[in-house]
Lab assay of single mutants.
Amino acid sequence: MVIEDPKTNKLIEVEKLPDGTYKVTIYDKKTGEKKTITMSKKDLEKLLKAL
Rank of each mutant, 00 (worst) to 15 (best):
L51T: 11
K34W: 15
D43A: 06
M39P: 03
T8P: 07
L47G: 00
E33G: 08
K29Y: 10
E4M: 01
K23P: 00
E13V: 07
L51V: 11
K34H: 10
L51W: 01
D43W: 02
N9R: 01
K46S: 14
D43N: 03
G32I: 00
K46F: 05
K30F: 15
S40A: 09
Y22L: 06
V2F: 00
T31F: 05
E4A: 01
L48G: 00
K46H: 12
G20D: 09
K29L: 12
K16E: 06
V14Y: 12
D43K: 04
K29H: 14
I12G: 05
K41Q: 12
K10R: 12
T31G: 07
K30V: 11
D43Q: 07
N9F: 05
M1F: 03
D5G: 00
T21Q: 09
T8R: 02
E13S: 08
D5H: 01
E45F: 03
E4L: 02
L17C: 04
P18E: 13
E15P: 00
K41A: 13
K23W: 13
I3G: 05
E4C: 14
M39K: 04
A50H: 10
T8N: 13
D19N: 09
E13Y: 08
K49S: 14
E33L: 11
I37T: 12
K35I: 13
M39C: 09
K10A: 10
N9H: 05
T21S: 14
L44Q: 01
E45Q: 03
T21A: 10
E4Q: 01
L51H: 13
N9W: 09
K41E: 15
D19K: 08
L48I: 07
E4V: 01
E4F: 06
E33N: 08
K10G: 09
K34L: 09
P6V: 09
D19E: 07
I37M: 08
I37W: 08
K30R: 10
E15Q: 09
L51K: 00
V2G: 03
I3S: 07
D5T: 01
V14E: 00
P6L: 15
E45C: 03
T8H: 10
K46M: 10
P18K: 12
D43Y: 03
D5V: 03
T31C: 03
V2Q: 07
L47M: 15
K42Q: 15
K46P: 08
L48Q: 02
K23E: 13
L44V: 15
K46C: 15
K35P: 01
I26P: 00
M39F: 04
K41V: 08
P18I: 13
D19G: 08
V14A: 11
G32T: 07
P18R: 05
K35M: 08
T21V: 10
T31Y: 07
A50G: 10
L11M: 14
M1L: 10
Y22R: 02
T36E: 08
L47P: 00
V14T: 09
P6Y: 02
D43P: 01
E13F: 04
T36Q: 15
K23H: 11
Y22H: 04
T36Y: 07
T38S: 14
T25C: 11
